[in-house]
Structures are given as structure tokens and as C-alpha cells.
Design a protein around this nucleic acid. Structure first.
Lengths: 190, 190
DNA sequence: ACCTGAACACCGTTCAAGT
DNA sequence: ACCTGAACACCGTTCAAGT
């Protein structure tokens, strides 16, 4: 029976997870799905649009944390960021895909909405909360991107040389520093 | 007379600045320089290698700030970050190019070395300084990337709709928050 | 409604052969 | 030493035509 948009997105997630963005071409996708390339364009408008859906799918496994009390909001934020990191870290080039989705259709990424919500709950005023979210998301995606570029480069040279540990410490350190800075900037935040 | 590597890099910077990474192809570069594509590969090993040199060139205009006293180091860091931002903000896709260079040949980017130096000068211990630099650089490149994606998208829709102001405030806010967080994490930092 | 076949206008990289 | 010509193995997107 007929190909569906869902199948297309799932196949794209599969190729991305296994081989990375360089191998995720419309032609390869078509081959994998046993259709001609043109067929894909009946289901999606463009490759970019497809990638936005791929990005959303990558975050599907991240559950919405329970709404915290103001005092606990920073902890929920840290927890959510760790969840996002672990959902993305094993998928090659996921940071790049997320960045595209964020600028093309930010509303399609639910967890980013939660992040904003929790920041406000913690006591960060409306306007600064969107700034603060930017800082946190830049850190999240930046950390993932540099981890993945390190993996990609060492895979070409000597495989299995990347210390996952260092990257994780660096990530946690950054989250801690940023949250502390927010507390200082906004006295309402604990 | 013969083409030089410098000419190649300069032409690449030119195309990037005017048209962005999507238009910076080896074939286009060859056309611009009145040679066949193959000729480029006598001067550079690959497009990636060329992009690393392009990244370094983009930072050539950033001067090394005078070595500050420990108390003034955070100010120098903020100043350096602003300089880096203004060197890159007008060049489309510069954040992407910088990220590649950073993972492929970090030592080719002098200002990143200075950043580390100033962080240590400010009182951040050796190990944490590299973490801290990561946080700052992620913020720098992330801010630039999202600004540029916004510009690219609005250029397709309604031109001149991007408020440069918002992006600048967001950037400064982030730098401030991170530096404050560092001061809290490391009591030696003012 | 959904897909094929075929085309259009591109890519990065390699390499024998020329000068 | 430096470059040409030509090939290899790819891209994303469009669209008339088929079922």
C-alpha cells in the first residue's frame, strides 16, 4: 500500500542515526523505501521540511517533567537538559538538525516550550527568560555538536578514542554555571 | 602567473561573505579564479581543509587585547567576545565554518587561545577554564548561528525584518550571566 | 491520490596527460 | 611545479505522464 509521511520520517531518522546527515539524501531515502525520488516530493515539500519533522521525532522520547515548585524549577531545568542531551547525543549531526528546526519551526519542539515555562516559574522575568533559554539551548546544542565532531574525526583516525566523560563533565559544568549566573542576575531565582 | 593558496582562501572568503556557504563550491571557486576545478586540488587537500583556513582568515581582523590584570580579566573576556562577534556576524554561515575549524584544527584559531589565557588569569583553574571556554564559545557561535538563520529565513520571506537589537541584547545578557556564574563557581574570580 | 521516468542544473574528488 | 580535460559517483527539485 501507499507510502506515508510517517514512514518517510522514520526512514530518515533511521539513516541519520546509523550513518549521519551526509548519507541522508533524498535519493538514498527513496532507495531505502523502494520508490523513485520524485515520489518523496508528494509527501514532503522539501528536504528541509523533512528535517524539521525529523528533529521533532528525535525529541519524542523526552517526557515532560512534572511542573515543579518555583524553588525546584532550576532542578527541573537541569534534569530536562540532561534528558534532551541523552536523546540527541547518540544521533550523529543531531545538533545541526535541531538548530535548523529551531529556526524554521520552533513551535514544533515542545521541550523548548517547557524550558521557557520552567525558567519563568523559577522567577526569571518574561523577556529575560527567552534570553536565558537561548543561552541554555546554545550550550546544549553546542556541547552536542562538538562531541559529535570529535567522534566523527576520531572515527576516521583511531576509533574509540573519545572520552565521553570529559564531554559530560563539561556539559554539567556549563549548566551549573549558567543557572548560578541566572540566580545572581535575577534575585528571585534560588 | 600561478595561482596561490592565499588567492584561493581570499576568493573563498569573498564568496562566503557575499553569498553564503551554499554557494561556496569548489566549482564556483574555480570559475571565479579562471581555472579548472582540478587545479584547486593542487593547492588544498580538500574543501574541508580550505574551510579551516577560511575560518582563521575571518578572525584575522580581531586584535589581541592587552593582557589585563586579574581583576580586569572578565572585562577583557567580554570585550574579546564582542570583537569576535562583530568579526563574524556579517559573514553568512560563519558560525558553521568556525565550528568545523574548531574541531578540525583548534590551534589555528588564535583568539580562542587568548580566551583560555584570560580565563586562567581571572582565576579559573586550569581544568575548569577549558570547560568555561566551551560555554562561552558555544554561546558566541550559537548566538551568531541563530541570528544568521533568522536573517536567511526572513530574506526569503519579507526582507529586512530581523531586529539586530534583540540579538545583541540576548548576546550581552548571556555573556553577563555566564561570567557571573563563573565568579560564583570560582571565588577567586571577581 | 499516488507514483514513475526522465530531465535539469548542480556537487566533491581523482588522475592521466599536458606544459 | 602547476594546470587541463575528463571522468566517477553522486546531489535536490520539478514535472509530464501514467495508474
Amino acid at each position: 500500500m501507499a507510502l506515508t509521511r510517517e514512514q518517510l520520517i522514520d526512514a530518515a531518522v533511521g539513516i541519520l542515526s546509523e550513518f549521519g546527515l551526509a548519507d541522508l539524501s533524498m535519493r538514498r531515502l527513496a532507495r531505502e523505501l523502494d520508490v523513485q525520488v520524485g515520489a518523496l516530493y508528494w509527501h514532503v515539500k522539501s528536504k528541509q521540511e523533512l528535517l524539521v519533522d525529523v528533529a521533532a521525532k528525535l525529541l519524542d522520547s523526552v517526557p515532560r517533567p512534572a511542573t515543579p515548585t518555583p524553588a525546584l524549577a532550576p532542578l527541573s531545568i537541569a534534569a530536562l537538559l540532561r534528558q534532551l542531551r541523552s536523546a540527541l547525543i547518540a544521533v550523529p549531526d543531531s545538533a545541526e538538525v535541531m538548530q535548523l528546526a529551531q529556526s524554521m519551526r520552533p513551535e514544533s519542539l515542545d521541550p523548548m516550550g517547557w524550558l521557557l515555562e520552567f525558567l519563568q516559574l523559577a522567577g526569571v522575568p518574561q523577556n529575560d527568560a527567552t534570553y536565558a533559554r537561548h543561552v541554555l539551548v546554545n550550550h546544549l546544542l553546542g556541547s552536542i555538536a562538538s562531541h559529535q565532531e570529535a567522534v566523527a574525526l576520531s572515527a576516521e583516525a583511531e576509533p574509540d578514542t573519545v572520552s565521553t566523560e570529559w564531554e559530560e563533565s563539561a556539559f554539567d559544568y556549563g549548566v551549573r554555571v549558567i543557572l548560578q549566573g541566572l540566580a545572581l542576575e535575577h534575585p528571585a531565582v534560588v
